[in-house]
């Protein structure tokens, strides 16, 4: 706690880059995960393969995945960003697939029968109905990403992981604790905030 109290500006600056990293990674991840999740919900035969593959990737230890990505793109912002995007696929796509797949079939039938176009059915009915479940996936992915993003301190000098890994190198437990506590607080805050959003979206 001493480091945290002595250098609030430094911790805050690193926390800001941490948040930035996680948010950008999740937005980009969602651009892939959303269509993949919709595909899984639409094609029951493809679904187990798709989610199975994403699930297999998800089980690769993050440090190992990161090591592979570093071999490929070098150090910096990019490897941790790519790792987060890849990791989040399973959690996000599973949420989208469960959400869209769970929408009341009668509402979808009615929407089509009344003359909504496919995109109006998707955005106006299916996504809206699936929103609470999809946001559950976003929440889990966010919390996990905040934790995994600490590895960014190891491979790229970004985020709160910088404190943790510098603390390890410099034998400064206070720095490690500061980085860990700040990351945990971020995760708890994100979880709480997203729970509120989820509740607001519940029908």
């Amino acid at each position: 706690m001493t480091y945290l109290l002595a250098h609030p500006a430094r911790v805050a600056a690193l926390a800001a880059t941490h948040v930035e990293l996680v948010v950008i990674a999740l937005v980009v991840a969602a651009l892939f995960a959303f269509p993949l999740g919709v595909l899984a919900a639409r094609r029951p035969r493809v679904s187990p393969w798709l989610l199975g593959t994403l699930g297999a990737i998800y089980t690769v230890p993050s440090l190992a995945l990161l090591a592979v990505v570093v071999q490929w793109v070098g150090l910096g912002f990019l490897p941790i960003f790519i790792a987060l995007v890849v990791y989040a696929q399973f959690m996000l796509a599973r949420g989208v697939a469960a959400g869209i797949g769970g929408v009341d079939a009668a509402q979808v039938d009615a929407a089509r029968g009344l003359g909504m176009s496919s995109s109006q059915v998707l955005w106006g009915v299916e996504v809206r109905q699936a929103l609470p479940v999809m946001l559950g996936g976003v929440r889990i992915a966010t919390v996990a990403s905040i934790a995994i993003a600490t590895l960014g301190g190891y491979v790229g000098g970004v985020g709160l992981g910088v404190l943790i890994f510098n603390g390890l190198t410099l034998h400064q437990p206070a720095m490690i604790v500061a980085g860990s506590i700040a990351a945990s607080l971020l995760a708890i805050a994100a979880d709480g905030a997203l729970r509120l959003v989820e509740r607001a979206a519940t029908i």
Partner: peptide
């Protein structure tokens, strides 16, 4: 198809009112 459906009323047993 979409234009056609907008000119034809459709009622089903499961009703399918949009709950949102």
């Amino acid at each position: 198809a979409v234009e056609l459906r907008r000119q034809i009323g459709y009622v089903i047993q499961a009703i399918g009112l949009f709950t949102h």
